[in-house]
Amino acid sequence: MLALASHAHAFDGIPNPLPGATAGDPQRGRAIVADRHVGLCLLCHSAPITEERFQGDLAPSLAGAGSRWTIPQLRLRIADSSRLNPATIMPSYYRTEGLTRVAPAHAGKTILSAQQIEDVVAYLATLKDTP
């Protein structure tokens, strides 16, 4: 994995898009968040995606995430939220090091690609209304 350290300057955000990614697309991002096998977000979070019935409550609602956080802050929170809270249960979506017993099919791979993370960030940035 590319060292995130070089991107995560102030430790509260990653200012630039992840390497190799183009501008995020909020529609694609929404689909990733909604898909339990891709984004997995709704396992833990709820989000204003009403067609998805079973949403988790292990984490704050994503509604309003775009007014709580800037794009660099959102990017860091998806890419590696353990930098903000080492004890968090939120997986680091752009990290491969420091993991144990990873299933062979997933070993050495990030949960989402750089482009998928940009898409998710672009979608979250549209979530301005709190519930």
Binding site: L42, L43, D57, I89, A107
Partner: peptide, 22 residues
């Protein structure tokens, strides 16, 4: 903590029981 999602059994079953996972 194990796996690509980096979660332990205890993180679900000791610290988050009673909550909804989806």
């Amino acid at each position: 903590r194990i796996g690509q999602l980096n979660l332990s059994c205890a993180q679900c079953h000791d610290a988050n029981w009673g909550r909804k996972l989806a």
